[in-house]
């Protein structure tokens, strides 16, 4: 009996304490409602340089993209370091929802019309749902409308088709550093030589370092294991800056390819950043280029009035 009395005594101050603590912090009364915090802005835009990033445009957002690749810088002043020799891609991307985007474009080099769909399957997050990476799937199709080199051959429309499929695996490591790995498959219905494989497997790696709110440094590299593409062949490497000014993103870079379509920059890049011209002279295949992105919101998001 005495024991329970003693226990009861203990309860009084305890109860009071609990109530007191609750008064001090009202929000804690509701308990911690665990939410999922999705990582945003792993990259500034939907492209790294030539290839895609894991980023999508938002639902109802139209992204108008103009890209240029110039001639080799080695051409010197006569070509204004390559500026006289420009190839252009103009494209439109659209966000169907926050996970799915589609786009079309037309590139001048080999007169390529391309179209793609990109789906964000996994989103990097912490909290209720922990996901270490973002995973996107990309499927891309190209139609080369340039005249066939051999007009005598029985050329079919299907010979103009090229395909690319990618897994985009990305992660943002803190505020300043993001990394992405891109296993890639390119299918060519028609190849230039018998030594060229119809199916080419490549792996890409890309990263960015955020220098300030609006400026980042980007790098993108695609490696094609040997034996799939006839020589001369070079893996493409791009290095550049990205400057964002509200509705625009400017990407300024140097690359060793003039292609802006997947089958082009992965299987047709001919010159390395630095190579020997055969006569013992060191040459550079580097060229200047830029992408400009301008977004337009066509549809207001749900729940916004």
């Amino acid at each position: 009996m005495k024991k329970t009395n003693f226990l009861l005594l203990l309860f009084f101050p305890l109860n009071a304490l609990v109530l007191h603590a609750q008064n001090d912090d009202l929000l804690s009364l509701l308990g911690d409602e665990l939410t999922t915090d999705y990582v945003i802005a792993t990259f500034k835009t939907t492209r790294i340089v030539n290839g895609h990033s894991i980023e999508n445009v938002g639902e109802g957002v139209l992204d108008f993209k103009i890209s240029h690749r110039f001639g080799p810088v080695r051409n010197g002043l006569y070509d204004v370091f390559g500026l006289d020799d420009a190839t252009i891609r103009i494209g439109l991307d659209y966000g169907i929802n926050d996970r799915l985007m589609v786009g079309v474009g037309r590139g001048g080099r080999e007169k390529v019309i391309d179209g793609f769909a990109k789906y964000k399957l996994l989103r990097q997050s912490t909290g209720k749902r922990n996901m270490p990476i973002t995973l996107s799937l990309l499927t891309n199709m190209e139609v080369k409308t340039v005249r066939f080199a051999d007009q005598e051959r029985d050329n079919k429309f299907t010979d103009r088709l090229f395909f690319a499929n990618q897994l985009l695996i990305g992660r943002k490591f803190g505020e300043h550093f993001s990394l992405q790995i891109m296993p890639t498959h390119v299918h060519r219905n028609l190849t230039t030589t018998r030594d060229d494989k119809n199916d080419v497997f490549a792996v890409g790696a890309a990263g960015r370092i955020k220098l300030s709110r609006r400026v980042t440094v980007n790098a993108e590299y695609y490696y094609v294991p040997e034996g799939q593409v006839a020589t001369p062949y070079a893996n493409c490497l791009a290095l550049g800056f990205e400057i964002e000014t509200g509705g625009h993103v400017f990407q300024l870079h140097f690359t060793n390819t003039s292609f802006m379509n997947y089958s082009g920059f992965i299987t047709q890049t001919a010159e390395d950043w630095f190579f020997n011209n055969g006569g013992g002279k060191l040459m550079s295949g580097a060229r200047f280029g830029f992408n400009i992105s301008r977004v337009f919101t066509l549809k207001k998001p749900k729940g916004f009035e």
């Binding site: 912090d25 915090d37 945003i40 802005a41 938002g58 919101t297 916004f304």
Partner: peptide, 23 residues
């Protein structure tokens, strides 16, 4: 007491929302 999740703010423009959170 009030608590508001900053990422829960919805903007008319998706990019604006990103810059609001990121920058």
């Amino acid at each position: 007491e009030w608590k508001v999740l900053i990422k829960g703010f919805l903007f008319e423009k998706a990019l604006m929302q990103e810059h609001f959170n990121e920058n």
